[in-house]
Design a protein around this nucleic acid. Structure first.
Lengths: 235, 235
DNA sequence: ATTGTTTCTATTTTCGAAATTTATTGCAAA
DNA sequence: TTTGCAATAAATTTCGAAAATAGAAACAAT
């Protein structure tokens, strides 16, 4: 059995653990469409195990809100709505602001150093993306670096809990953002400038400016939020 | 098979669902001591099912951070430390403040009405507790009303996600608070006054005052946070 | 006494099939 | 055509036992 490194950094030997990670990855990268049923019986072929271990992996994911589980009727992928998207975005911003504020307060050289490094890596790929005609090859890499950058922002907050929850909400946000906005997040020079502004104010330890920069960066299309109504349904 | 109502409000038929709820309840009420192993093989007798369904219930709980799961070495209860307690407290306050701010902003009569009702119920039992010599009979009831009161505070925030996460963190906080502070939360007249102050400022829609009141209420022993070391034991 | 190896026991993980429940289809009645 | 019911199919839940792994105990060697 091959060893894999899971979300929390530990190594897993079990096939349920492997299935968990592969499922989680697939969910984040939109392998299944919204609201689709996830049947252990079918999935077992894709992952070459039994339906039992698939069920176990799905239950884990349900506990972390990455899949929906309804007793007696199984599992399904999330069904993003405009509401759930906005709720996730708000929560993400709340957690990121808090982590950022604390990180700046602590004011640690290591943190600054890691932040600059993460930003540099992100910037490098973003520069390439500016000149590319087809971005599809960059999506995965950019997304990884973007996640690392935003993790680096709050890395110095001294709360493992906050970091862990932020990471989870960030991933859930991304799933919903892709479904709702129809894009994976990179908006060209605008995005790059926003990242730059965040780093600059962070290094200056200007908490207010940095918070504002993060807020603006995540809350794009702000004007339309209250204009474009949610695709109205439901009684 | 008896029907039970689970955490999210839905009804469950499955024995795994029942086990999940009973385990969750037991964990919140300190049925097992900190760091204790939770072995499906033993637990199955207590809940009169098989180890398989116990395992399933435990996996769900692990996903929600109510138990610790390490692959190949099973499940165990949480191991509260002073750090984890403080982290949970901070996160609880962050979420509660946010929910409260939004609730006040929305300014809804129904919300005020429900809040007053929840506070009234809490006050009723607290009055009785003031005159009681033995509080042990009141713990469960008070805890339920306190949870409902704090849920009522943020009930008008319009974010199901925020409410759900707050509830989860609140419960986790309580587990750690009991372990760390050695008490279940009621501090006599002080607590009652704090609750009153929270309601009063909420009804006056004085967001700042209300936030401050919540902060003070939850962050008790603030001065000692950096002074009083954790009851040092453990190797 | 300490270290390292082997043996044994307890626990966890995995599997497959039976039991239960839900969903679908086909058919008859209004 | 629609509605209600029965039969069928599909999926979920539960069970029990086999396989794999970890932890403890006993033992030997330095």
């Amino acid at each position: 059995m091959s060893k894999h490194t899971n979300f929390s950094g530990a190594t897993t030997h079990t096939s349920a653990g492997v299935a968990y990670e592969r499922l989680r990855d697939g969910l984040i990268w939109g392998r299944w469409k919204a609201g689709e049923k996830l049947k252990p019986q079918h999935l077992k072929d894709l992952f070459s195990t039994t339906s039992g271990v698939l069920r176990e992996a799905l239950i884990r994911l349900a506990g972390e809100s990455f899949v929906i589980f309804e007793e007696q009727r199984g599992f399904s992928t999330l069904n993003p709505t405009r509401e759930s998207f906005l709720e996730l975005r708000s929560l993400r911003i709340l957690l990121e602001k808090e982590g950022l504020t604390l990180s700046i307060q602590q004011g640690n050289l290591d943190w600054e150093s890691n932040l600059v490094a993460a930003h540099g890596q992100l910037q490098l790929i973003e520069r390439k993306m500016l000149n590319a005609t087809d971005l599809s090859d960059f999506i995965r890499t950019w997304s990884r670096y973007d996640a690392q950058f935003h993790a680096a922002l709050i890395a110095n907050c001294r709360s493992d809990l906050l970091k862990k929850e932020h990471r989870r909400i960030y991933d859930l946000y991304r799933i919903h953002a892709i479904a709702e906005l129809g894009t994976f997040g990179f908006r060209g020079k605008t995005t790059m400038d926003e990242h730059q502004a965040i780093v600059d104010s962070a290094l200056e330890r200007d908490t207010d400016a940095c918070i504002k920069a993060v807020d603006q960066h995540v809350t794009i299309y702000r004007d339309q939020d209250n204009v474009k109504p949610p695709t109205s349904q439901s009684g």
